[in-house]
Design a protein around this nucleic acid. Structure first.
Lengths: 201, 201
DNA sequence: GGTGCCTCATGACAGGTGTCACACGGAAGT
DNA sequence: ACTTCCGTGTGACACCTGTCATGAGGCACC
């Protein structure tokens, strides 16, 4: 029996995944949560063999939770199951110790297969996404460039970004300018969009 | 037996919902698709009693599909089931003839309940979202203001927007300025974000 | 027929933004 | 030690943006 933990914030999707996996004879759902910051605690109680984690969740993100799990329970495999196939997500997920990365637009029956393969020690990665990750390469942005893009992605002005990051406005302008050039776009709104699409934020 | 059609682009979620609903004795899944523009065609073949539609889908959106369904098959109830509770979405969905509006973070078992209530002629609306829609009110934006925000939301410059809408740059600036003031924000990036959050785009 | 709103446009102006050159200290690699 | 980044900062400059005043035409409503 494979003990599975599910972390997914949308209750309906979580319930539906549960229903789906409950039909498999060799899979047992031992825990479920809608928050990233409850994953570790829940794993302590339930000792799962595999954790199914979404990336977008309240209380943190699935990639962070994957890293924590990896530290505390090295025997527990992590399978990221998410909506968006951002190449950068895949890279960060694998670096944080995830054993697999599936997209929600894969067929449903592949999920059980992926769980079984993960248990056997295989790394399961969505094929299309793997190709995209290879062609996209690593983020060209420095840490600070990423920070300013992040702080400004909601539409904040340079002054706002400077305040929230405790930097001078000139410095923020320089970082933005350099990020805009690296991403080959024309303004910070586009830069934030492109970086987000690549999973570089 | 309630005949149900599912339109949802993420295959895993679609499959999982199918598994969930298949466990109900009085519900039968008669069709499924991942594209908004196949809904009508599929309904012609399968004659569903209820159509479960996501909003974000390739080939159009679920609200448009709801309107088409309403015209061609007035007896088929439409239940919108979506991720984001944008008040404007709810309004547009109800105006286009949807019988219900559920969020994916409702508990899974409520989906079957909602389907049954829809069949009985009830209108099923997520309670929290209904309150939000009432407090948010209708969009204050004129058609053209909406257009320029839409054209610029990816980060396009004023010149780009003007070209794509065949307007002068000054006109675009005026519309943006007026939208920015109506939405009580400071620049067009924020304006686009706020309008999008309200479902006004 | 007046009033008000929307669409489209122009011109002017202040302030925000992106670019560039330059500087200094620290960390990392050779 | 030397070089090469990165992070941080300043000042200057050109250009982009947001605001405002103003105008014309069209449509709807009273």
């Amino acid at each position: 029996m494979i003990r599975v933990l599910i972390a997914e914030d949308q209750a309906m999707v979580r319930g539906a995944l549960k229903a789906l996996l409950a039909m498999e004879d060799d899979i047992q759902i031992v825990g479920e949560t809608d928050r990233a910051d409850r994953v570790l605690e829940l794993a302590k109680q339930t000792r799962p063999d595999v954790a199914l984690l979404d990336i977008e969740m309240p209380g943190g993100d699935g990639i962070g939770a994957a890293g924590e799990l990896r530290n505390e329970f090295p025997s527990c495999k992590v399978l990221i199951v998410t909506t968006f196939g951002r190449p950068g997500f895949l890279r960060r997920a694998m670096e944080s110790g995830a054993a697999g990365f599936m997209l929600k637009d894969s067929p449903a029956h592949e999920l059980a297969l992926a769980i079984r393969r993960t248990i056997k020690g295989d790394r399961v990665i969505d094929p299309g996404l793997a190709a995209a990750a290879l062609s996209a390469g690593v983020s060209p942005l420095s840490d600070r460039e990423r920070d300013v893009l992040n702080a400004g992605k909601g539409g904040a002005s340079i002054a706002d970004i400077a305040k929230s990051l405790f930097l001078s406005e000139g410095t923020v302008r320089n970082y933005l300018s350099s990020a805009i050039q690296k991403l080959e776009v024309g303004n910070r709104t586009e830069a934030a969009r492109v970086a987000e699409e690549q999973g570089w934020l």
